[in-house]
Nucleic acid binder design. Sequence first.
DNA 1: AAAGAAATTGTAACTCAGTATCAATAAGCC
DNA 2: GGCTTATTGATACTGAGTTACAATTTCTTT
Lengths: 149, 149
Amino acid sequence: MAFQSELEVFRKFLKNQGMRYTPEREAIIKEIFSIHDHFDVDGLYISMRRKGLRVSKASIYRLIPLLIEANLIAEVFFDKGQTYYEHIYGHEHHCHLRCKECNKIEEFSDPRLKDLEKELSERFGYKILTHKLQVIGICSKCQAKEDSA
Amino acid sequence: MAFQSELEVFRKFLKNQGMRYTPEREAIIKEIFSIHDHFDVDGLYISMRRKGLRVSKASIYRLIPLLIEANLIAEVFFDKGQTYYEHIYGHEHHCHLRCKECNKIEEFSDPRLKDLEKELSERFGYKILTHKLQVIGICSKCQAKEDSA
DNA sequence: AAAGAAATTGTAACTCAGTATCAATAAGCC
DNA sequence: GGCTTATTGATACTGAGTTACAATTTCTTT
């Protein structure tokens, strides 16, 4: 099957669920997939307003769980109280390495985690769905700052 | 050096920081370390009230960051919006396997994660501090329920 | 042991992300 | 085009966590 755009995938998802495709949803999705980085609701709302796209925050908050259910985006929690999202449709599963000081994020993936999943599945009798690994450290720039301080 | 109790460690920590040891702090810490499981602020507060220990929630909220800084406890996020804590003093670092349905938690640790940390450190130039791995799946009981449903 | 500086407490007000309510509107099926 | 029902935006609300502040307590100094 040919690659379908996020919009196509989502239209089908909505139809399946008896839900409706609206200009507001389209605008939000287009905005989300024009950002090639992690995003949050507030940032999304502000950047849409700047472009004159008027949708309410409530609509964004209402749309996000649908996009998650449709496997287009996923939640990422970098730190307490801040919720971010990232695209997952058409992306490899990956993990995050975060600098504790400046919050810079590096992405990586590692085949050993698949092996680990398999072993855990056998050991505990779980059906494994996914994993979230966050490695926390200090990036080289911030290390340099600390040393000179 | 002999094993120091959590209370001893914390008293030293407070002294180092020019902070004071109060009956409220003592009561909260004793309560925390009498729980041998993950805990949250609300649960802690309720169980202290039940025992007639009267401390304000504000004091609990104020104490927790200190216990984290003293490396006695750590935050664990099982799911959006719920903050839990666990003891880490005198415990091996471990990761969590969580059932998406019933939220049951299994703990495990794996030496490969240390190797991974080392590789990431070299590859990205980070000084690695820690990692948090959460594996999400469906436990055997919940799988059985789903099958029969 | 008393005094005094400074930290801590509890209460209550506040913040902020996210949710629920509801009347007005619009999508999608006939 | 008309009708059913989902969706929207505005607004009110919720709940976790924080902050301000006056009263109290710790801890150091004498």
